[in-house]
Structure formats: C-alpha cells, structure tokens
Amino acid sequence: MKQVVENKCFGGRQLRFTHSSEVLDCDMHFSVYLPPRAETAPVPVLYWLSGLTCTDENFVAKAGAQQFAAREGVALVAPDTSPRGADVPDDPAGAYDFGLGAGFYVNATEPPWNRHYRMYDYVVDELPALLARALPLDNGRAGICGHSMGGHGALIIALKNPDRYRSVSAFAPICSPLNCPWGEKALGGYLGTDRRQWEANDTTALVRAATERLPILVDQGEADEFLAEQLRTELLVAASAEAQYPMEIRRQPGYDHSYFFIASFIGDHLRFHGQYLNK
C-alpha cells in the first residue's frame, strides 16, 4: 500500500493509494478521505462504489462529499470499479458496460473473467482488511453507498452482509440486473447463462429473501435517461412492499443521472449514514 496523492480538504486529508491486490491479481488504486477527527481517534467509514466508466477519482472530485464527511466525522473510501492492467481482459467490442470500468461488484465464475473480476471479494474483504491495518478506521462502524452500477453494488453487498454494515444508500441504482440490458450482459458474461445464479446479485431478489433489516435510503432522479430501461426503480418499490422491508425511496423531480444529481443530495446521505455510524 503506497500513498501517491495527498490534499488537505475541509480540515482533513484526501488521499490516494496504490497496492497489489491478491484477490484481483493486479495493481489497484483507491481513494480515502480522512476527516479531522481521524487525527485523534479511529473513525467510522463509508464505502462509496462508483458507476460504469468511473475510477476511484470521480466521486472525490465531483460529489463534494468531503465537507459533509468532515462534519459527521466519517471517513470515505472509494475503490476503483474494476480490475485494471495490461493483462486484465476487456469487452471484446470495447463497450463501456462490460469489462474495464464495469466490474459490477460480483465474483466472476466464467473464464477469462474469473481470474481478475472478483470485485465483490475485493470490496467486502480485501480492501477493508488492508485499510484496518494502515489507517485509523473503525470497520465495526461501516456503511456503504454508491451510484448506478455502484448503487447496485452497495445494495447487494449490504443485503448479503447485514452484520458488516450499519446503513446503506444509493443514487439511481440498477435495482434488478435480472431485468435490464446492462445487468443481463454483465451477469451473463461474468456468471454464465444460468439465471438462477444471478439472483444472489439482484437487489430485488435479495430484498424478498432478507431476514434482517438495514436502514436504506435511495434517491432516484425522475429525469434520469436510464430510469425506464436500465434502473427499474419500480421493481425495488414493489419488492420492498412485498417483503415488508422498510426503506426510503425518494423520487427527485428534474434530476438526471449525473454527478450534479449526486452533489445535490450527498449531504442528505452523509447525514443519513452519520446517525447510524456515530452510535
């Protein structure tokens, strides 16, 4: 783990690191914001998972989250969205919705993807263990959040690991990869053609099967160009009602899929997580 960038920000430190990942079998970058409170004691941590085509740097540069993280005394951790490197395979057609920048936060089982594309294990196990050894973070007080593909990742990871996270939120998540073109391409490529194997990576299926309840906040822009075909928010609304799983799903008039949308409501999400992470 090698630090490659440091900037002072709202009294804290915005950092970027590189390390060699055993899980992904490649070198990876990730970004961390440490609030001022981390100078004197370990702080709770919020993991942010970004969407298609992003790296670890999009969120830290565009969302404006650091000011709210400083107020809440919460660290922000932003991993990359896929394995990287010359040996890592990409979509054969060079499309943006599969391969590099599109790991979908699952563990691939199909070759050649299964050698590197194990973003689920990276986010849930390898990265938190690495950070716990190196930085003043309290992983016993962790939340997870994300956008689009990353919103899908945050929701499935939290739902599958309710003992690891105190809270989860999402901006414009892909709510049901089983029922949208992005999800069908990604899960079919990474996990194979048996759709029964996809259900463990579909938020609506996990909500229906959940036996524990986590605090969940979802924001969705009503002017989002991907809402009808790819995001399928109505399926999450239906699944939560069917399973009697309480969650706050807010429809925001006029907002699209961009980081302008995220920046507009990121303060709400940091306050939402802060009330659970600072207990």
Rank of each mutant, 00 (worst) to 15 (best):
G183I: 00
V168T: 11
F260L: 10
F17M: 08
E229M: 04
Q252I: 15
T193K: 14
F59Q: 12
R232V: 06
G183K: 05
A241K: 13
V43N: 01
L236C: 03
V43H: 01
M119V: 05
G192N: 07
L76M: 08
T109E: 11
C175N: 07
L214G: 01
F30M: 01
A223E: 08
Y276N: 05
A241G: 15
L130C: 05
L49V: 06
H19L: 09
L34D: 08
A158I: 06
L135M: 11
N161M: 11
P92Q: 11
E242G: 00
W48H: 15
S31N: 09
A263L: 06
P35V: 13
N107M: 06
S176W: 08
L131F: 05
E6M: 12
N7A: 15
E6C: 15
A243Q: 00
A69G: 07
Y47D: 09
P253F: 14
H152V: 05
E39M: 13
G267W: 11
Q220R: 05
F261E: 11
R133Y: 02
V237L: 15
P253M: 09
D138F: 10
G73C: 09
P89F: 11
E229V: 03
E229H: 02
G188T: 08
A69R: 07
Y105M: 12
L155Y: 08
A108C: 04
P253R: 09
V74C: 14
Q244L: 04
I262C: 09
P89V: 12
A170M: 01
Q66N: 08
L46S: 06
L206H: 12
R213G: 00
E199W: 05
R141K: 12
G146P: 00
V77Y: 13
H116C: 02
G99E: 01
T211I: 03
N107I: 07
S50L: 03
L131C: 15
T204S: 04
A41Q: 13
K62A: 14
W113M: 13
C180H: 03
A75Q: 08
L76S: 10
Y259E: 13
A63P: 12
L178M: 14
S31H: 03
A243F: 02
L24A: 07
W182G: 04
T53S: 15
Q275D: 10
C175W: 00
L270E: 08
K185V: 00
Q230P: 04
M1N: 02
G51C: 06
A129D: 10
A86Y: 09
P181W: 01
G274M: 04
A238K: 10
R195D: 02
R71G: 13
V124R: 14
